[in-house]
Computed example of a mutant assay.
Amino acid sequence: MELLYLIFDASDDGQGLGCWEAMASVPSGEQDAVVAEACRVLAAAERQAPGPRGPQEEGGVWDAELQVQPDGAWVAVTLTLTGPWDWGEALLGR
């Protein structure tokens, strides 16, 4: 999957879990394209899910959060994924 807007930064907890966060700040006219790209990543994450989605303390294996924050003529789109390190690296390495 080619990403044009989102560039992910990864961090791991040293115990096999990772967090991948990407943010794109674009003119409001490009919001739909960025959100569509984020939705493609989420759809791929769902297809390749390593287990149930949700907070780890509630039995989830992976989770995601998408935020869209308008700021005047610009909008910031943030996508955060958490889950097993190998899963996230394989998902975003494609």
Rank of each mutant, 00 (worst) to 15 (best):
L17H: 15
L17N: 09
V34D: 01
V41E: 01
V26C: 12
A44R: 08
C39I: 07
I7M: 02
L79A: 11
W74K: 14
V77D: 04
G72F: 09
G72H: 08
W85D: 07
A73M: 08
A36K: 10
V35P: 15
D32F: 09
Q56G: 06
A76C: 11
W87E: 00
S28F: 14
V75Q: 02
E37S: 10
C39G: 06
G54A: 04
Q67R: 14
E57H: 14
V75T: 12
L17Q: 13
A76G: 03
G83K: 11
Q69F: 01
F8I: 07
E58D: 15
D13H: 09
I7E: 13
C39A: 12
P27L: 10
D9L: 12
C19A: 13
V34P: 00
D12K: 08
I7H: 11
V77F: 03
P55G: 06
L17W: 13
D9N: 14
Q56I: 14
C39E: 14
P55W: 08
Y5V: 04
E2K: 13
V61W: 03
Q56E: 12
V26M: 13
G29W: 01
E30S: 12
F8H: 01
A10H: 12
L17T: 04
P55D: 11
A10W: 07
A64G: 02
E89L: 12
W20M: 05
P55T: 04
V68G: 04
W62M: 01
L66A: 00
V26Y: 11
